[in-house]
Amino acid sequence: HMTFVALYDYVASGETDLSFKKGERLQIVNNTEGDWALAHSLTTGRTGYIPSNYVAPSD
């Protein structure tokens, strides 16, 4: 899985969403939902949907 870094803070709007903080590292599990991606946080160990425009690929 590619690793991504959060560009902004995001507060989950539902139970299936994943909250994260700017700078948090995430792995995209499934990116077939258009503007949303299923992601796993390497920081918190949690998995949920995130807005895909809130993250960018990290080196």
Results as ranks from 00 to 15, higher is better:
52 S>N: 10
25 R>N: 06
50 I>Y: 01
41 S>W: 01
44 T>N: 04
21 K>C: 11
10 Y>E: 00
54 Y>R: 06
27 Q>C: 15
49 Y>N: 05
17 D>T: 07
28 I>D: 00
34 G>W: 06
57 P>Y: 11
58 S>R: 07
23 G>W: 03
29 V>M: 13
22 K>H: 05
17 D>W: 09
22 K>D: 01
24 E>Q: 02
54 Y>K: 06
57 P>F: 12
35 D>K: 11
39 A>D: 00
31 N>S: 12
52 S>M: 15
38 L>D: 00
17 D>R: 10
54 Y>P: 03
26 L>W: 01
47 T>F: 09
14 G>S: 13
41 S>P: 00
9 D>T: 06
22 K>S: 06
53 N>E: 09
10 Y>A: 01
47 T>K: 07
39 A>K: 00
20 F>H: 02
23 G>F: 03
6 A>P: 03
27 Q>P: 00
26 L>V: 04
45 G>F: 04
42 L>D: 04
24 E>S: 01
56 A>G: 10
50 I>S: 00
58 S>F: 14
3 T>C: 15
20 F>L: 06
52 S>T: 15
8 Y>L: 08
30 N>S: 14
27 Q>T: 11
40 H>L: 14
32 T>R: 10
27 Q>D: 05
58 S>K: 08
44 T>G: 02
19 S>Y: 04
32 T>I: 14
7 L>D: 05
3 T>L: 13
3 T>W: 14
20 F>T: 02
15 E>F: 08
3 T>P: 06
41 S>I: 02
24 E>L: 00
11 V>H: 09
7 L>T: 06
18 L>N: 03
32 T>G: 12
34 G>E: 07
16 T>H: 15
51 P>Y: 03
52 S>H: 09
41 S>Q: 04
27 Q>L: 15
41 S>K: 01
21 K>A: 08
43 T>K: 09
57 P>Q: 10
51 P>H: 03
50 I>V: 10
36 W>V: 06
28 I>Y: 05
23 G>D: 04
56 A>N: 08
8 Y>V: 08
26 L>F: 15
8 Y>K: 07
47 T>G: 05
37 A>D: 03
31 N>W: 15
7 L>R: 04
27 Q>A: 09
18 L>C: 04
13 S>I: 14
22 K>V: 07
39 A>P: 00
7 L>H: 05
4 F>L: 08
22 K>Y: 03
27 Q>Y: 14
12 A>S: 09
7 L>M: 10
9 D>N: 05
26 L>K: 00
52 S>A: 12
11 V>N: 10
15 E>A: 11
15 E>S: 12
32 T>L: 15
10 Y>I: 02
1 H>D: 12
16 T>L: 13
19 S>T: 09
4 F>T: 07
51 P>K: 04
51 P>F: 02
9 D>C: 05
12 A>H: 04
58 S>I: 15
3 T>S: 09
34 G>P: 07
29 V>F: 12
52 S>P: 11
26 L>M: 08
9 D>Q: 02
38 L>P: 01
2 M>T: 11
31 N>D: 11
45 G>W: 02
16 T>M: 14
24 E>V: 00
9 D>A: 04
59 D>W: 13
24 E>N: 01
51 P>C: 04
13 S>H: 11
26 L>R: 00
26 L>N: 00
13 S>Q: 14
55 V>C: 06
2 M>C: 15
29 V>Q: 08
14 G>L: 08
4 F>Q: 05
47 T>V: 09
4 F>E: 02
26 L>I: 10
53 N>C: 15
44 T>M: 02
2 M>S: 10
35 D>F: 11
37 A>W: 15
45 G>M: 05
35 D>P: 12
8 Y>M: 10
19 S>A: 06
20 F>C: 05
37 A>H: 10
43 T>E: 13
40 H>A: 06
6 A>Y: 01
48 G>T: 01
14 G>A: 11
44 T>F: 01
57 P>A: 11
8 Y>N: 07
49 Y>F: 11
20 F>W: 02
37 A>C: 14
48 G>Q: 01
30 N>R: 11
7 L>C: 11
52 S>D: 04
11 V>Q: 11
40 H>Y: 13
25 R>I: 15
21 K>R: 11
56 A>Q: 11
7 L>S: 05
38 L>W: 13
33 E>W: 12
50 I>E: 00
27 Q>S: 08
18 L>G: 03
43 T>H: 08
43 T>Q: 08
23 G>Y: 04
2 M>N: 11
26 L>H: 00
35 D>V: 09
31 N>P: 13
22 K>R: 09
48 G>Y: 02
27 Q>E: 10
34 G>V: 06
2 M>I: 13
21 K>W: 04
26 L>E: 00
42 L>M: 08
37 A>T: 12
10 Y>V: 03
41 S>V: 01
22 K>I: 06
35 D>R: 10
49 Y>Q: 05
35 D>H: 11
17 D>N: 09
34 G>M: 06
36 W>P: 03
37 A>I: 15
49 Y>E: 03
30 N>G: 15
16 T>W: 15
53 N>G: 13
33 E>V: 12
20 F>G: 01
24 E>K: 00
10 Y>T: 00
21 K>N: 08
9 D>F: 03
14 G>N: 13
49 Y>W: 15
39 A>R: 00
1 H>Y: 13
48 G>N: 01
5 V>L: 08
13 S>L: 12
44 T>H: 02
51 P>T: 01
30 N>Q: 12
28 I>K: 03
40 H>Q: 11
17 D>C: 15
41 S>L: 02
5 V>Y: 08
54 Y>T: 06
19 S>G: 09
39 A>E: 00
17 D>P: 02
40 H>S: 07
17 D>S: 08
6 A>H: 00
24 E>Y: 03
16 T>Y: 15
20 F>M: 07
41 S>D: 03
21 K>D: 05
45 G>Y: 04
47 T>W: 14
25 R>P: 06
14 G>H: 10
41 S>G: 01
59 D>H: 12
11 V>F: 10
15 E>Q: 10
38 L>T: 03
59 D>T: 12
35 D>M: 10
31 N>M: 14
53 N>R: 13
10 Y>R: 03
36 W>R: 08
5 V>N: 03
21 K>T: 09
50 I>M: 03
4 F>R: 06
9 D>M: 02
1 H>I: 12
57 P>I: 12
1 H>C: 15
31 N>C: 15
